[in-house]
Each structure stands twice: as structure tokens, then as C-alpha cells.
Design a protein around this nucleic acid. Structure first.
Length: 152
RNA sequence: UCAGUCGGCCGGACGGCCGCUCCGGCAAGCGCCGAAAGGCCGCCGGGGAGGAAAGUCCGGGCUCCCUUGACAUACGGUGCCGGAUAACGUCCGGCGGGGGUGACCCCAGGGAAAGUGCCACAGAGAACGAACCGCCCGCCUUCGCCCUUCAGGGCUAUGGCGUGACAAGCCCUCGGGCUCGCCACGCCGAAGCAGCGCAAGCUGCAUAGGCGGGUAAGGGUGAAAAGGUGCGGUAAGAGCGCACCGCGGUUCCGGCAACGGAGCCGGCAUGGCAAACCCCACCGGGAGCAAAACCGAAUAGGGACGGCAAAUGCGGGCCGAUCGCGCAAGCGAUAACGCCGCGGGGCGGUGUCAGGCCCGCCGUCCGGGUAGGUUGCUCGAGGCCAUGUGCAAACAUGGUCCCAGAGGAAUGGCCGUCACGUAUCGUUCGCGCAAGCGGACGGUGCCCUACAGAACCCGGCUUACAGGCCGGCUGAUAUU
């Protein structure tokens, strides 16, 4: 599992699917290459001053570290956007929140499907939107092996 | 013991599990990611946020631009003196002024007899000095009548005050204000003493009023009223005179200086504001690590070469023309028309064709340069200790140590125990009649710490901060 560091990757993930939770927002986007799962963190300035933002990011990072990597989708980029509740919310509860967020079907909140290919980078120009849509629409066939291999 | 003042320091501790980042050592697959630059992966050891890392307000180092070295101007900044320093608006030590019983604290502290400007409101007067009240002097007027127990009461003239009407003048923010005249009404209202004279009366003092002057002592206004206090002096007053203080000038002494002290002279002239303009002295080129250097894709531009291709095009040939060379024959070059051969790709449109419109493409290399990567990047005006110099800030010498280097941004996350703080409850002890106060112990809850996160690096300033510790000094009280 790698960290997400380039600004272009963050912009790409921000246009993807998102799941809301009390302490964070999970954004995700599938990639075409066969690289590892990458996770980034975003804490905006409206969440407080620098120590508060640092603490939010560190708790979110610890959540991802504690979580079983098999519950994430392979070849995906994830971005956790921190909220103010991440400072005070119980850590075990947040861990459950994150686990639910990874298994919950994602949905697009504000981006229309017409805007998505315009914001996509140049690689995989034609088939990227349709593929993302199909994975969003039917989670059960893609996720069935993931749930089956969860016991180990 | 209480209250205060100044300075310094800390800013949770220990343990468990799981991680992040940097450095060093060892090992290392012809490994993985990437087009490349470059990056990643193992084990061991070590380091890893602050007193303000903050605000970005000053001063530097460093980098680039520029030549701006100097002078002048403009703009900005600083502003008692001396020292410290790389430098500063910082620090230290003094000086002056102000506050406090005191330790101590505060001061944007050059120039107001270079100039311009301002000083609201209140007040008579706010700057080429002012007369509202008051005090004093001079002149003029006043001191009448009735009752009467001689204590007083009453009436009224001139007059004074108040209110109202009218008229005039001036100012004016056109609402009014001020001054004067006149009329009406109301109110006040002529106390006394002495001398001369038989008396009527006269004169003087006093009273009251008016006019003219003197006066800056006093009242009142104000942030500020033209040196202060006291004595003398005067009609009353006044630096009018004197003493002391203050101020100005000058001489001497002390001090590197700011400045201080003493003497003499001057009766005092110079109100305040320069965080109003201004004057004087000194300082300042600009931008900033997202600086800058190196490496360096894709895409679109630029250049060179090669290939394909070309259609107002290419190739070939003939005739003629022009130009150059040549004595000449002739040779070479040029472009257009005519002749022959060759006729690509795309767009749009149409039932289809004809007709119409547009024109380069590919490869290699070079150069600028973007994303990206690497460097800059932490050994430094460095920390600690000792000695010496100095009142101190600080400096010098010696020894010793290496002490964060991230980059969507590491330095942590989750627990446990303890401490501290705080709230509440219970038990108990001391004092007290009681209410209550103080201490100790235990349980529970809260905060589980305040302010706050390095971003190239230093020196400062400013601001924020739960709680706690130490030391110096001052005042008060108590005891010895």
C-alpha cells in the first residue's frame, strides 16, 4: 500500500465515487494499471489550526493501517477527507465506520457523468467512464470473491 | 506570615503493542517501478518540534535580477548619550522627565527666538496679549416726605431690576443674536455719623448710582490664562523692589558624552501641538528557497537533415528570348507560354458523376522549455563547560559535543499505571455557641492537558499560554 502524493492523482480521485461518514469522507477511483492500492489524506483548513489538522490526519492514517487491506478494492486510489469529528470520535467506532465505508456501495454525489471524461487524464480515454459506471452499478459480482476470502 | 516587584526555568512521567522519517554500518537480486531523469525493497544501531516552531514587524547571511560605487532628488525609516553586535527599530549601562512609602516601573525623549498651520467646547480674554465679576482713584449726583413708643414702619422723585410691545443699527447658519432709544406694567427704594451755625442750611466721611481712568493680586472657564512662593511696596495692584526656586545668557569645575554642580549677569523676553506640514542628522537598489542550479518526458511551437509526396506541381525535350563570358565559333545561367509524360491526400456536398474548397506528411537530430526528479538542506554569527576581561550587554582563549531535516508535508496512533489540577460526595481532626473556615484520607467524574506544529538558516521584537518550580529585592506585621 502506497501513499498518494501527486496533486494530479488527488484531483482525479476527487471526481470519483464518495462515501460519507461522521468523521471523514471516503473518495475512491479505480486505476487501469496493476499497481498497489494507494491512499491519500486531505484535511482542509476549515477544520482548525495546524495541530488539529495534524491530529486528524494521523488518526485517519492509523485507521487505514489498522484496517485489513483485503477489504479494499485492488488497483484503486482512495482519499480520506478528514472532518472535525475525527478529533473526538471514539477510535474503535471510527474503525467500524471505515470498514462499513469500504464495503458500502459508493455513489456519485455532485459530478454528472458528462463531466467525468473531461476531467479524466488522457490515459484510458474511451472506456474509463463506462467501466467505472458498471462497477458502481453492480457491486455484488465484483465483490463476491472479496467477501469470500475475508475469513483468512 | 501576608502583600508586592524583578529575573530565571519547566511546560506531564513511566511502561506495552503497532508504525513514520532521516543518518551510519552491513548485505544486495543484473530484482521492481518509470519513457527518462531518478526512485523503491532487507537487517542492526542511533537521532527526530517550540518557548513561543505563531504573527511575518525589523535586522542580517544566502540566491537571482540589476549595476543602483559616489552624489543629488524623491520616497520610506530611525531620532537623549556612550557601549555591545555581522546588523538592527534589539540588548546593556548611564542622563533627563514622570509615577510609587519602597523594591521598581513608564517615556515616539532632536529642533517651536527658519517658516506655515491648528488650539474644538467653555470662557471677558486662546496669542502683533484679554477687563466679565471684583479691588482702587478722580469727577458728578444722591442723602426727600409722613407716622412715631426713637426701635422702626410707610410713601414717592430721579434711579435700578425684571417682563412685554414698538422703532433703529450691526451681525447672521435667515432661525435668530447683540447694542441703543422709547412706552406700559410689576418689584426695590432714599440707613446713618461728625463739624460749623440761633435757625434755614453748608461741609466732610459713609451709603447708593452713573461716567472716566488705574489694576492681572482674587473669583469663574478651560487640557492650557502669560514665571511660582513669601516679604516689602502701593490708592489698589503689578518683577515695581528683594530672598529662594524656576528660566535665559555666560565663566569655571566634574564627566568620553548626554548632562550635572557652583559663581556672576539679566527682572523674565520664549504658551502648547512636530504620532500637523516642515527643518536637521543618520540609514536604505529590488525580489525572495514557490530564490536559484542541474537533469529532463508527453504535447504544441522553433531550427537542421533525410525520405515520401507535390498539380497556379515535378521531370524531360524542342523552338525562341534575355543575361554573363569569349575576337569569334560557342559555352553557361535564368524564367514564362506552348508540346509530351506523370495527376496524391483530406473536407464538404450530392441520388451519382462532373464541377467546388484546402494542403504537406513521416523519421532522425539540435535548442529553448513545462510536468516531474535531484540539489539547495542543514557544522551554524552552533550548543555546553571552564578560565580571563568588563558594572553589564558581550567578547577572547581552551576543552568537549554533533543535536530534526519533511515535502498532499515524518517527529505519531491506541492502551495501562501514576502524578498534578479541578468539581462533587463521604469519613475524620482542629478552631468556633453557631454559621462556617482550614487540614488529612478515600470514592467518582472531568481535563486526560494551556497556547500551539519546524518548512532555507540565524539575531531580535510583538502576541498567545492550563498549571508549576526556584532565586534576588521591597513594604507591613509578629517573635527572638
Amino acid at each position: 500500500m502506497d501513499r498518494l502524493r501527486q496533486r494530479a492523482d488527488f484531483v482525479a480521485v476527487a471526481n470519483g465515487a464518495r462515501v460519507n461518514s461522521p468523521a471523514f469522507v471516503l473518495q475512491s477511483r479505480p486505476r487501469d494499471d496493476s499497481g498497489p492500492i494507494r491512499v491519500g489524506f486531505t484535511v482542509t483548513k476549515k477544520n482548525g489550526n495546524a495541530p488539529a489538522r495534524n491530529r486528524i490526519r494521523r488518526r485517519l492514517r492509523e485507521l487505514v493501517k489498522r484496517l485489513d487491506p483485503v477489504s479494499m478494492q485492488p488497483h484503486h486510489d482512495y482519499v480520506l477527507v478528514g472532518r472535525r469529528d475525527a478529533l473526538s470520535r471514539d477510535f474503535a467506532t471510527m474503525l467500524d465506520d471505515l470498514r462499513i465505508a469500504f464495503t458500502k456501495p459508493a455513489r456519485h454525489t455532485h459530478k454528472g457523468p458528462a463531466k467525468t471524461p473531461a476531467n479524466r487524464p488522457s490515459k484510458a480515454p474511451s472506456k474509463a467512464p463506462s467501466k467505472a459506471r458498471s462497477e458502481r452499478r453492480g457491486p455484488t459480482p465484483g465483490r463476491a470473491p472479496a467477501t469470500s476470502r475475508k475469513p483468512d
